[in-house]
Design a protein around this nucleic acid. Sequence first.
RNA 1: GGCGACGUAGCCAAGUGGUUUAAGGCGGGGGUCUGCAAAACCUCUAUUCGGCGGUUCGAAUCCGCCCGUCGCCUCCA
Length: 513
Amino acid sequence: MKLYNTLSGKLETFHSSNDVVKMYVCGVTPYSQSHVGHVLRAVVFDVLRRYLEFKGFLVKHVENFTDIDDKMIQRAESTGVSTNKLADDNINIYLSEIKEMNILPAHVYPRATQEIPKIIEMIEGLIGKGFAYCIEGNVYFRVRKDEDYGKLGRRSLDTMIAGSRVEIDENKEDVMDFALWKCEKPGEPSWDSPWGYGRPGWHIECSAMALSHLGFPIDIHGGGQDLVFPHHENEIAQSESYVGSEPMSRYWLHNGLVRLGSGKMSKSDGNLVTVKDALQNHSADELRLFFLSAHYRSPLSYTEEGVSTQTRAVERLRNAVRSTSPGGSSYTVQIGDFKKRFISAMDDDLNTPRALAVLFELSRHINKGIENGYNVVQIQDTLQGLCNVLGLTLAEPIFNREPEFFPLINLLVDTNAELRSRGREDLSGNMYEQLRVSGISIEEILGVGGQAPKSLDGFSSSDADKIITILVELRDIIRSEGLYELSDSIRERFGDLGFILEDSSTGTKWKRS
RNA sequence: GGCGACGUAGCCAAGUGGUUUAAGGCGGGGGUCUGCAAAACCUCUAUUCGGCGGUUCGAAUCCGCCCGUCGCCUCCA
């Protein structure tokens, strides 16, 4: 497998250094809700992890939360909560969104504030070796001492300083020196240290967490492209200077950034769509397919329309996997060839667009096989398996009780009235008998005969399924008797409720849209 | 100002010297099936890869220039 290593600027063949692939991915600063860019990053590294595991590697995945920094402090102050509470709340939201996106949870989620001893230990070590110095309670990293500083971003100190917008701090020896430890300011959270009360600077927490949870060196260090400089550059400088060897990470992987409108999606600029809003309008599979339809290193423009077009594509895969296969002889397709093509695409720096093309071709073969009466179970299993490697669930959309249930009952009642007005008490009676057998009482639900309407709490998705199935079967009878006007109107009303009815010679199938 | 990325059909997006007179998805046209619709299948939808030059037997793919979009150099996934 080849991966693009930012450090070398080339595709490199990936080898694990030992039994377990040690992967550290830079997570979020939990001062507010996450946006689509964060979840894209999470999906990219989720796919990397799933694919490594598919290839037989064991992966230890660590993802951090930087739960103390300027933004955390500002936001906590302005909302009147502690930085801890702020972090807890946003972390909980993030983790539930990760789950909804079918992203495998990291094995460890360390938090900066819980790694203070390790951070202090590292800073002391850096001072001891002359890589850092303390001035008035602040500790800075001495970039001039680190001769290969700038190697990740491929830039030199001098070109960076020329024409740059680095803030001038008279205390620092060099404008490019960055803070390892920041002196306490009144009212801010702080920890005791050899340099007085204060808090860690940005960057050092990741070095400390990677070192304590994964050791040195690690195999893969990941994050968004906007972290290359200065965050990852500084991590390298600190970690390699502290340990006294290199590399800190054998591979550095960076995903492309999400664009919204004319610029990149960004939390601090407020140019964003939250994960919450995205998941309100789109399913996890739709979002994931949208992300994976472009290469992970290219920028991706987020538009509602762009994600929405994935609805049909997801459905295509879902239909192929879920359609009932005829029994009998197997459809002859070289499954091995498709798997090979999938693997060769993924081996090529996770070329998910090419991998997806293979999945869509498999889908077409499944449908063709079914149409010709062949057994396609094996191909379906292959497709489902490869979808799993990409983290696509192909799950049916979830039943939403409140908006669906009463309209469904209304449809049932109206259909009943229609039948009776046509003098088909036989069919209406038949329907009620079916409902009774299924343990569903319309009278109870509607509260007929002076009873209070029954609460919906007792009804589940499977009750809704029963009612739908009974109605669909009834409609089949209506259809077979040529009452097309009525059957079409029932299908239309199902459509309004978000259900698709597909008629065929072997009966009617229904599904949620 | 410095460094870097990108520009492929109506839209999204692979392909980076010859089995590609350019995958796949969405959209659209035509057809098959069907009472109709949907799904599905078949078929068509870029003689051409931002523009202009050059290298080569041969370029979307390499080189040069130009135009355009974006990222980093400052907090950022």
